[in-house]
Simulated assay, not measured.
Amino acid sequence: MNIALIAHDKKKELMIEFTKKHRDFFCKHQLFATGTTGQLIIDHTQLQVHRVKSGPLGGDQQIGALISDEKMDLVIFFRDPLTAQPHEPDVSALIRLCDVYNIPLATNIGTANYLLGYASSRE
């Protein structure tokens, strides 16, 4: 599967812990991530990650383009719902594209754990 990993600043530590916990799952798949999140995942897990630009610099749109080209199978986007984001329209567009193309989207740890459990059971 092609999996996108995105995390707002206040959720980056959560993403690091999540990818460490599920490293055995992620090493079997192609990972894509926005700039800073991707580098943190690489630094802490040594997983291979295709990095796009940082979210505010167009990374969310790049992931969206992969979705619209039907090249993404799962998106895990740990959003910070309590902090205003300067690129909120890009975030909304990414979520909308997941809905349009029926791409499973986890925006919190509970849903992400559930989706990985489901995906693991189908391997």
Rank of each mutant, 00 (worst) to 15 (best):
residue 2 N to Q: 15
residue 3 I to Q: 08
residue 6 I to D: 14
residue 6 I to K: 13
residue 7 A to T: 09
residue 10 K to E: 14
residue 10 K to Q: 15
residue 11 K to C: 14
residue 11 K to E: 08
residue 14 L to M: 15
residue 14 L to A: 15
residue 15 M to N: 13
residue 16 I to T: 14
residue 16 I to Y: 11
residue 16 I to Q: 15
residue 20 K to N: 00
residue 20 K to T: 07
residue 20 K to Q: 15
residue 21 K to G: 15
residue 21 K to V: 13
residue 21 K to P: 14
residue 22 H to F: 11
residue 24 D to H: 09
residue 25 F to P: 15
residue 26 F to M: 07
residue 26 F to A: 13
residue 28 K to I: 04
residue 28 K to E: 03
residue 33 A to V: 01
residue 33 A to T: 05
residue 36 T to K: 08
residue 37 T to N: 02
residue 39 Q to S: 09
residue 39 Q to L: 03
residue 40 L to Q: 01
residue 40 L to N: 04
residue 40 L to C: 07
residue 42 I to D: 03
residue 46 Q to D: 04
residue 46 Q to C: 02
residue 48 Q to M: 07
residue 51 R to P: 12
residue 51 R to N: 09
residue 54 S to Y: 10
residue 55 G to S: 12
residue 57 L to V: 12
residue 59 G to K: 13
residue 59 G to M: 12
residue 59 G to A: 07
residue 61 Q to W: 12
residue 62 Q to P: 08
residue 62 Q to H: 11
residue 63 I to S: 00
residue 63 I to R: 02
residue 64 G to S: 12
residue 64 G to L: 13
residue 66 L to W: 00
residue 68 S to K: 09
residue 68 S to I: 02
residue 69 D to Y: 03
residue 71 K to R: 03
residue 73 D to H: 03
residue 75 V to Q: 07
residue 75 V to D: 02
residue 76 I to Y: 04
residue 77 F to C: 06
residue 77 F to L: 01
residue 78 F to Q: 05
residue 80 D to H: 02
residue 80 D to V: 11
residue 81 P to G: 00
residue 81 P to F: 11
residue 81 P to R: 05
residue 84 A to W: 01
residue 84 A to T: 10
residue 85 Q to I: 07
residue 87 H to F: 01
residue 87 H to R: 09
residue 88 E to A: 14
residue 88 E to N: 00
residue 90 D to L: 01
residue 90 D to W: 07
residue 90 D to N: 06
residue 91 V to K: 00
residue 92 S to V: 03
residue 93 A to C: 01
residue 94 L to F: 07
residue 95 I to W: 04
residue 97 L to P: 12
residue 98 C to A: 10
residue 100 V to P: 11
residue 101 Y to D: 10
residue 102 N to T: 06
residue 103 I to H: 10
residue 104 P to V: 01
residue 105 L to Y: 03
residue 105 L to N: 08
residue 105 L to C: 08
residue 108 N to M: 04
residue 110 G to R: 13
residue 112 A to R: 06
residue 112 A to V: 05
residue 112 A to Q: 04
residue 112 A to H: 08
residue 113 N to I: 05
residue 114 Y to G: 02
residue 115 L to W: 00
residue 117 G to K: 04
residue 117 G to D: 10
residue 119 A to E: 03
residue 120 S to K: 05
residue 120 S to P: 12
residue 120 S to T: 14
residue 121 S to L: 12
residue 122 R to M: 14
